[in-house]
Design a protein around this nucleic acid. Structure first.
Length: 430
RNA sequence: GGAGAGGUGGCAGAGUGGUUGAAUGUGGCGGUCUCGAAAACCGUUGUACGUGCAAACGUACCGAGGGUUCGAAUCCCUCUCUCUCCGCCA
């Protein structure tokens, strides 16, 4: 959510920036007319409320003094504007919720350092680490590797549930677990994150807080629990972890607070039919190790750099080539002010594919969640929130399988993961 | 799942229709005293929004949302959470 005061003061400026950078057309006229209506109705309403409150106090006093005549005269006086007050109050709350609805559908303003562009073609590469290795055979993709190993079973997953699910077996299932364990250990021990375990089902308020609702409900799996309430399967650990401090006021000393959380993620992938239908790239369910930070506004951009570095370090340790790009303004998520994507090299696709997305949301989520901090006894201020995948476990598994494949169809276990695999150095066909 | 009891300020805990944004205690902050500290005493101590250059004034908020009333922390309804007992269960 953008700052309402800023919108009131600089609506044209904000609208121009949103158009230029996000190709988002803001309904300025509606906003301006709602605001001016709000202003006059609120002022009228509060004046009437003040009048009613003061007369009501006098009624109390009159009754206390036994002056029933005066009391009933005063009650009559209130009656003269009671209807008007009620109408005003209803109008006001209607307008306020319209303003809120409008506001909650406006995406975040990109940071000045985010490159302006429309599609992923306009993303800017900032870093390229490691060179794709050369193979003396034609590298195959993880689906074929999994098949050779007898360790990936998409058909049975489809039978059990449906398309876009996977079953992993034996060494590959263990490798998947090892990758998650390894990432958690690195981020807690080397990078100072606190491990956190959270619910996988969240309520609508939490999804509003991080920006998935109200606009992107079709991307979520929901579970109705009563006529008026649903729980939602988390699309990312960002949702429960960031909402940890929803509605709370932190102290400045608590910043930055850093959490790492391993969860499954559930996405309906509506609107992506036909894309990445082969293999594990795009699933309804996948595991992810997520990094979340609550930061002081003054250094959230430095924190974004270090957080991105934390995610990259996993690929460096695994010795898998990757590149990091700054997303252009047109390719960024709704809530983000700046995003780096880390793209891992997949020999089976002969391409770099997204494995992590690291974003600074500035106060956009904090404002929706009402997460603030206080300096000493001073005024409260919104925190900045950041998060990044560190990394997507399923895609890391794919990257390991494809980058470490051997000619005979077996797969080497990366050095750093061997201790998590009971010393196993090679995954062979079962 | 059944029965009962409750959600009040950082915390504890009063308050069942009328100057109650809320007693009292405690914690926090400022001060007096002291070489300093403790103790004691005095003062202060929530959030958000609106109008305003500001000072200030006003409005809303006692789990959430509705309702009754001139007036609601207090009465009514719905939801939610916590606790106790029973049942079930990893």
């Amino acid at each position: 959510m953008l700052d309402l005061q800023t919108l009131r003061n600089d609506i044209q400026d904000v609208a121009a920036k949103l158009k230029e950078r996000r190709n988002f057309v803001m309904d300025v006229d509606t906003f301006v007319s709602l605001e001016s209506a709000r202003k006059s109705i609120q002022s009228d309403t509060e004046q009437l409320q003040a009048k009613r409150n003061s007369i009501s106090k006098d009624i109390g006093l009159a009754k206390k003094n036994g002056d029933d005549q005066k009391a009933s005269d005063l009650m009559k006086a209130v009656g003269e504007f009671a209807d008007q007050l009620k109408i005003n109050e209803e109008k006001l709350s209607g307008i306020q919720s319209e303003i809120r609805d409008l506001l909650s559908g406006i995406p975040n303003l990109p940071h000045d350092s985010a490159p302006i562009g429309k599609t992923e073609e306009d993303n800017v590469e900032v870093k390229k680490v490691g060179a794709p290795r050369s193979y003396d055979f034609e590298p195959i993709d993880h689906v074929d590797i999994g098949e050779h190993l007898g360790a990936l079973d998409f058909e049975r997953a489809t039978k059990i549930t449906g398309s876009r699910f996977a079953v992993m077996l034996g060494g590959v299932a263990r490798l998947h677990r090892a990758i998650a364990q390894y990432m958690l250990d690195i981020h807690t021990q080397r990078h100072g994150y606190t491990e956190i375990y959270t619910p996988y089902l969240v309520n609508a308020d939490s999804l509003f807080g991080t920006g998935q609702l109200p606009k992107f409900e079709e991307d979520l799996f929901s579970i109705p629990i009563s006529d008026e309430q649903s729980f939602y399967l988390i699309p990312t650990a960002e949702v429960p972890v960031t909402n940890l401090y929803r509605g709370e006021i932190l102290t400045a000393e608590q910043l930055p607070t850093k959490f790492v959380c391993h969860t499954p993620c559930f996405r309906s992938e509506a609107g992506s039919y036909g894309r990445d239908t082969r293999g594990m790239i795009r699933q309804h369910q996948f595991d992810k190790v997520e990094l979340v930070q609550f930061s002081h506004p003054d250094n959230s951009y430095e924190q974004l750099e270090t957080l991105t570095g934390h995610a990259e370090s996993i690929l460096i340790d695994l010795d898998i080539p990757f590149r990091t790009v700054t997303l252009c303004t047109g390719d960024m998520g709704f809530s983000s002010a700046k995003t780096y994507d880390i793209e891992v090299w997949l020999p089976g696709q002969n391409a770099y594919r997204e494995i992590s997305s690291c974003s600074n949301f500035e106060a956009f989520q904090a404002r929706r969640m009402q997460t603030r901090f206080r300096v000493g006894k001073g005024k409260t201020e919104f925190v900045h929130t950041l998060n990044g995948s560190g990394l997507a476990v399923g895609r890391t598994l794919i990257a390991v399988l494809e980058n470490y494949q051997l000619k005979d169809g077996s797969v080497e276990v990366p050095q750093v993961l061997q201790s998590y695999m009971g010393g196993m150095e090679l995954i062979e066909p079962s």
